[in-house]
């Protein structure tokens, strides 16, 4: 062995020390890798899973669902004029700030993004999903559709199915409960009638890692 210049131990020592010095010298990688690929986002967009129906949101509002958190993506001045009950204002250009990261980085609450339409809420949704946050939804149709569907529902015209009629009744009830028509919603919301739509409990998607020997 003496004549051979490299024993396995020497080779290992050289290799480990080199790599060790490199890893000690480089800063720790703190960039949060994108949790979803562009294709996964596209798939979700295509299937429209991000949308939540106004009826469901209204139902949750009426029931004062503690897990619901409405996020208003419009500029602050518009938010101050009118907003949905319990909503907080996160203007679109502030969506990536550190405080918002703390807000979104959890698995418990259901977030519902809305703007006047859906364009801006969808853009915010894409950003948040790429960062790996879960339970982010977009209110279908935004405020425009909300006003039409919940606050001032039109009775279905002509011959309608029972489903349509039931939906109309529900919207009317919820609209009244949420201060329909002309008034911005107050805090004092009392549940009235209206068809109970089953509300899906929010669920965390990210798994907790198990491990160890226990």
């Amino acid at each position: 062995m003496k004549n051979i210049s490299f024993t396995p131990r020497m080779l290992l020592t050289a290799g480990l020390l080199t790599l060790g010095v490199i890893i000690a010298a480089v800063p720790k990688n703190t960039t949060k890798p994108y949790k979803l690929s562009a294709k996964q986002i596209l798939d979700e967009l295509k299937s429209g899973t991000q949308y939540i129906e106004p009826e469901q949101v209204a139902q949750m509002l009426v029931e004062k669902d503690p897990f619901l958190q409405l996020i208003d993506t419009r500029p602050q001045n518009e938010f101050e004029k009118f907003s949905l009950p319990g909503a907080i204002n996160v203007p679109f250009d502030a969506i990536l700030s550190d405080e918002q990261a703390e807000l979104f980085d959890q698995n418990v609450r259901t977030f519902v993004l809305y703007g006047n339409g859906t364009t801006q809420a969808n853009e915010a949704w894409m950003l948040l999903r790429q960062l790996g946050y879960n339970n982010i939804n977009v209110l279908r149709g935004g405020l425009n559709y909300w006003a039409e569907a919940i606050l001032n529902p039109n009775p279905p015209a002509g011959i309608t199915s029972n489903d349509d009629l039931a939906r109309y009744n529900f919207r009317k009830g919820a609209g009244q409960a949420l201060g329909g028509g002309e008034q911005p919603a107050g805090n004092d919301v009392k549940p009235t009638g209206g068809q109970k739509a089953p509300v899906q409990p929010p669920k965390g998607k990210k798994k907790k890692v198990a491990g160890g020997c226990s």
């Binding site: 396995p8 131990r9 080779l11 290992l12 890692v209 198990a210 491990g211 160890g212 020997c213």
Partner: peptide, 24 residues
């Protein structure tokens, strides 16, 4: 030493695949 490196690779693979490591 070779066995040790391979053992390390097994542990690394377990962490990469399952986010956990070997146990008995």
């Amino acid at each position: 030493y070779l066995a040790g490196v391979l053992l390390g690779v097994v542990v690394l693979a377990a962490n990469f695949i399952s986010g956990r490591s070997v146990g008995s």
